[in-house]
Design a protein around this nucleic acid. Structure first.
Lengths: 181, 181
DNA sequence: CGACAATATATCGTTTTGATGTATCTGTTT
DNA sequence: AAACAGATACATCAAAACGATATATTGTCG
């Protein structure tokens, strides 16, 4: 136990490419990654200091004379091994928490219009997210010659494909509700 | 704060239809709901006793002479109001945690075959879940005359539609990886 | 130069997760 | 009727995640 902390792998994955501060890590997670994983200061900073103690990362003070010192983190060989072991492992948990579907499931406690409204809110959100994902896709398409970018690209197309499926479902669900309820 | 506990709403939603024990609630959540929300004894039992204190649910001892007493929970008027207020509120958090996509995103730290293998594992899992969802759908289609079942049905079709999109994406992603990496 | 946003680190209370512990009840087999 | 497996039922705990907040510095723009 105490080895199940998923945020560790997110951090190691990011540090594999470049040295980062805790704040940088949060920003990276808030970008394209946030569509399939989230992080907060409340778990990033504790994870960094734990991983430093167990030798997965090392601190590197930035040498910016005059200005305040930042704590840059750097991945160690041990950290790289941990990252690769995780990538090689079969185990992968895909956990979903759709409050929208929860509300729909219990929709019988209210009227049809409430359910329709909630589907509408969801649709709104999906459309907005989809627009962001599409700009990510366009940007990435221009730089697919770099291997890493292919991996990023695939996670973006995953988002686009599923979000498009959501929108299609929304149309059908509204129709079904209007006919059946 | 201390009002953001989502498990409360899941429990209230279930109790709206019938009185249940904590154990029953866990079983219900492990069924069709588990595709979009999860629960554990570790949050169900504390939630039940907190909600009893704040008057959202009431204990009802089962009168089964001889046998062990079960603690059945019953929703109160206050609990029903809380449930309806939540259904009427716009706010709905849809949180995804795809370890599969996380591994894919950081795939550059390993070779193409590892990424392909991980997509394969995901595909396997999705196929299995899809089969379960399809039997749910068939069962529900026979009883769509009851209003509640329409709501259950829609959450199931959501699952089927998105899982089918996943499978389509898997095929495309494997092709892209083989061409580009 | 004063106001305000962004950077940067850190902590705190609440909630969730996942595993485990304990005991009882039920159905089946011999 | 005894033995046993497996389901039922309630409960707790450590670890992890979440979300908000505190604090201070640096950058920028009118």
């Amino acid at each position: 136990m105490a080895k199940d902390r998923k945020i560790d792998l997110v951090i190691l994955g990011l540090l594999f490419h470049e040295d980062l501060t805790g704040y940088d890590i949060k920003k990276r997670i808030d970008g394209a990654i946030s569509f399939f994983w989230k992080g907060s200061f409340g778990n990033i900073y504790p994870a960094l200091s734990d991983m430093e103690k167990s030798g997965l990362v090392k601190k590197r003070r930035s040498e910016t004379e005059g200005r305040r010192e930042k704590i840059l983190y750097h991945i160690t060989d041990k950290g790289t091994d941990t990252l690769k072991d995780w990538l090689n492992a079969k185990q992968a948990t895909n956990d979903l928490k759709y409050e929208t579907l929860l509300k729909l499931y219990f929709g019988g406690a209210q009227d049809k219009d409430t359910a329709l409204r909630n589907i509408g809110y969801f649709e709104e959100q999906v459309r907005a997210d989809l627009a962001v994902l599409r700009t990510y896709k366009e940007t990435l398409e221009k730089v697919l010659d770099r291997k890493d970018h292919v991996y990023y690209y695939l996670t973006v197309t995953f988002g686009i494909d599923t979000y498009e499926a959501y929108l299609k479902w929304c149309r059908g669900a509204k129709k079904t509700l209007n006919i059946m309820c």
